[in-house]
């Protein structure tokens, strides 16, 4: 087990104005007893609404924040106590916070990092070559970081986080704000990294495509607690996300008509378009029953949408 956290907590004291001069102190639990176990080589999606405690958890795992309570080890190391030792064995990309030197060419940042992490020149060159090939760094490696586009910079950040060959890679919103092509490049790169299997990746994201394409395991956190830990399919099952049939009709939908094994969710276009959610039955049976009951013009079956699940999850959380 490469990451292990139990009962992890982080509390912040915030002062709030109460009246003209009085201020009240409140204790806010950003992370409230999180248990997390990650095996070597896993790619884990750590998701949840804004303010759920995702970043705070990541910061405790990487030694940036001191936990208020609980136990945590990463690579068998206690993060805050042995911060610099751990730093050599993990790589981190925190969305907005650059690891790179703003005014220097990207390549110079890389060579500085080589010295800071004491990476042998050969290893450094090999890894840089690999990243460069996959992410297409060559065209802007001589450009000062401040002149890079967000997408280029993120590719640089990913490379910077991997040059010392970390065992665990922590990514906080790596695709936020990127253009479509950069997103694809980053996703493709992470998929490749995952396929090689020697780097454990923990990823927070709001991007549902990231989740669908990359994350075999999802940990959903809300109000500082883990509310789901499992695969995407399990998440669908748990939140009863269902396949749907959208049917266009020649005549309006009879108001009291019921189809066994399906639930009518919406009726639109003067009753000429109806959406039904399937209760687990095979779609064929329902379609057959439907064809008998009404005059069908067109019909489509839609797979469950992760958006719906996540939206429902977040709504429930509120």
């Amino acid at each position: 087990m490469i990451i292990s956290a139990s009962g992890l907590r982080k509390e912040f004291t915030v002062t709030r104005k109460a009246g003209r001069f009085r201020r009240e102190r409140h204790v806010v639990s950003a992370v409230d007893g999180v248990d997390l176990r990650v095996e070597r080589g896993e790619l884990l999606g750590y998701i949840g609404p804004n303010g759920a405690g995702k970043s705070t958890t990541l910061k405790m795992l990487t030694g940036v924040l001191t936990p208020s309570g609980g136990e945590v080890t990463v690579c068998g190391i206690e993060p805050v106590a042995k911060r610099t030792t751990l730093a050599r064995r993990i790589g981190v990309v925190f969305g907005q916070r650059s690891q790179l030197w703003w005014d220097l060419p990207l390549g110079e940042s890389f060579s500085l990092l080589r010295h800071i992490y004491r990476v042998p020149a050969g290893d450094h060159a090999t890894r840089l070559r690999q990243c460069s090939d996959l992410l297409g760094l060559d065209e802007f490696i001589e450009t000062p970081v401040r002149q890079l586009s967000l997408g280029q910079r993120m590719r640089g950040e990913l490379t910077a986080a991997l040059l010392h060959g970390p065992e665990v890679l922590f990514l906080d919103e790596p695709t936020i704000g990127l253009d479509v092509l950069s997103k694809q490049a980053v996703r493709g790169f992470l998929a490749e990294l995952d396929a090689r299997g020697d780097t454990t990746v923990v990823l927070t994201t709001h991007d549902l495509a990231d989740i669908e394409k990359l994350c075999r395991r999802l940990v959903v956190i809300d109000h500082g607690r883990v509310v789901h830990d499992g695969t995407l399919d399990e998440l669908h099952a748990r939140y009863r996300s269902r396949r749907t049939i959208v049917a266009d009709l020649d005549t309006p939908w009879p108001p009291n008509l019921k189809i066994p094994g399906a639930e009518v969710t919406t009726v639109e276009a003067d009753g000429r378009r109806v959406t039904l959610a399937l209760d687990g039955l095979a779609a064929g049976q329902v379609v057959a029953a439907l064809a008998q009951a009404v005059a069908l013009r067109d019909l489509s079956v839609q797979e469950p949408q992760i958006e719906d699940v996540i939206a429902r999850l977040y709504r429930d959380a509120d």
Binding site: T84, A87, F94, Q96, R97, Q99, I116, R118
Partner: peptide
């Protein structure tokens, strides 16, 4: 700005 994070993530004091 939280930029202090990047200092804490490097293997130096």
């Amino acid at each position: 700005t939280g930029m202090f994070d990047s200092l804490l993530l490097r293997p130096l004091s």
